[in-house]
């Protein structure tokens, strides 16, 4: 199976220009016979939207953007990011990721963990998603996360427990910290790699992280997208800070081999986790 990663920038708040760029990269991926192409978080809109959130929101059922992407999804599976608003919940805007395949919307994940501290203010402009759910695709059972979701390890666990073999995170992570004198990238890139390595190894799953590049309002997005194998080995890492596009061959049989060597999946006890969490949640009170 071949996975394309488009580590690109977006034009802030301009759906038309971003859709056009998506279609160009999708065509490149099709030309290189990729089965799936992945774009960063909020790839159709840009990240630092603030009040633009409402103006660029898309209803997948009505938007003119979706039919174009659904059409190309007959040739290649797509993962991209957008602002979602639904008929059932007007006025609520979600930071969402869509998985399209064979002309259909296979799954939409709404970002659960909205960073709202320091330089981040997502909770001010977005509604939070309420679920992690793995889903079947023509390629492999998959789980989607968006940026901060991935840094809360419960997210990956839920998707792992739900049978995901591919864990895909789309991201718009700005880089911070330059005190590592050897690195080509920001210090914060390390936490994503740490999580990628750990989650891939302990889930015996393929972990894909697609981060964006470029600048918005002075913040530099760090790039450094990667794929880790089910053995926790780095398969490919894209450059920090620079736009990049790759198509990478992935051996899905490795998941089976890894799970024979390290039976974390076989020995998982979600019912014990569930009971423990239930007890913790029930006893939780104000102090």
């Amino acid at each position: 199976m071949k996975i394309a990663i488009a580590q690109i920038s977006s034009v802030l708040g301009n759906l038309d220009k971003n859709l056009k760029r998506h279609l160009e990269f999708i065509q490149q991926a099709i030309d290189q016979k990729a089965d799936l192409i992945i774009f960063p978080e909020l790839s159709l809109t840009g990240y630092s939207l603030k009040d633009l959130v409402a103006e660029v929101a898309i209803n997948p059922a009505q938007s003119v953007v979706f039919p174009e992407l659904l059409e190309v999804s007959k040739k290649i599976d797509l993962v991209f990011g957008f602002v979602e608003e639904r008929n059932s919940n007007p006025g609520l805007f979600f930071n969402s990721a869509a998985y399209l395949s064979e002309g259909k919307i296979v799954h939409i994940h709404r970002k659960v963990f909205l960073p709202t501290s320091g330089m981040f203010e997502e909770g001010r402009f977005f509604a939070a998603g309420r679920e992690f759910r793995s889903f079947e695709t023509r390629l492999a059972r998959t789980g989607l996360m968006i940026c901060r979701d991935f840094l809360h390890y419960g997210s990956s666990y839920c998707l792992f427990a739900d049978g995901a073999r591919l864990l895909i995170t789309i991201s718009a992570a700005p880089g911070r910290g330059v005190s590592n004198l050897e690195s080509q990238g920001f210090e914060t890139s390390r936490m994503w790699e740490l999580m990628g390595e750990a989650m891939s190894f302990f889930s015996s799953a393929v972990v894909i992280y697609c981060n964006r590049v470029g600048l918005e309002d002075g913040a530099t997005f760090a790039g450094g997208s990667f794929i880790y194998s089910p053995y926790g080995k780095l398969i490919v890492k894209l450059p920090y800070l620079e736009e990049a596009f790759i198509v990478q061959e992935i051996d899905l049989d490795e998941i089976r081999r890894a799970r024979k060597s390290w039976p974390f999946k076989r020995d998982d006890r979600p019912e014990v986790i569930w009971r423990s969490l239930e007890r913790i949640i029930k006893k939780e009170d104000e102090d």
Partner: peptide, 10 residues
């Protein structure tokens, strides 16, 4: 509460 990004449409 009229909050737009500096890099609006750029």
């Amino acid at each position: 509460d009229f909050l737009y990004p500096y890099d609006w449409d750029k």
